[in-house]
Amino acid sequence: MSALPMLDDEPPLLVVEGLTVAYGNRVGCRDVGFELWPGEVLGIVGESGSGKTSLLNALSAKIEPAAGTIHYRLRDGTMADLFGLSEAVRRQLLRTDWGVVHQNPRDGLRLTVSAGANVGERLMAVGARHYGEIRGSALDWLGKVEIDRDRIDDRPSSFSGGMQQRLQIARNLVTNPRLVFMDEPTGGLDVSVQARLLDLIRGLVADLGLSAIIVTHDLAVARLLAHRLMVMRGGEVVESGLTDQVLDDPQHPYTQLLVSSILQV
């Protein structure tokens, strides 16, 4: 884990208070609150059904929370209530300032168009209208995520799982977002590919000064990427703190169980 950039003078990027997501009578997550600073990576860990994805969906404005507030600092420095913004501005944020990396790359990619078009789509969505420049950026980003440049005109459906996931990351980062949401970014990949992807994400996050919220059930991923951890169970945050602190000295019985259930090879 890299050192947490502690910038006292900078206000938080995201402030979440009392966030509750409900599906009718069922609760997705309850009363979640935290702050995220620029350049910080927050890991959310917990078992399946613990409310990780519900929380992520609410944070990325995909579903409207039943209660609580999310404030996000816009590029002009003002703190805006996410659900007080108009839908137009919210969708604009999602396309430019934010990135969402899905667990299944097929949810985040357009499989029927080439890799270049996948990377270029966000640029075109924010008004790029010069083919040569769009293609230049696409090539540049394919290089950054270690995809051969001569694959630019191939469809992602012909890519391996790891390549698809890297392409998805490139597609999200091309507009220089400030905040990236990742839902199990290494899910479904074999360990060696996972390791390379983690290296890549760690490098990109450090180089670009991104803030990221990473949902994972894999504590190794959390240990490698996250500065801070939140442990969730049954829709509630049971423990939070610095990653090393939470993983090396777990306080809550559930966290202790989680940490002790890692296979030691």
């Binding site: 168009v113 080439s114 270049g116 078009a117 789509e121 075109m124 969505a125 083919y131």
Partner: peptide, 11 residues
């Protein structure tokens, strides 16, 4: 939100 229309031309 018409930016994605250009994806087709890009292709």
């Amino acid at each position: 939100e018409y930016g994605a229309m250009h994806v087709r031309f890009y292709e």
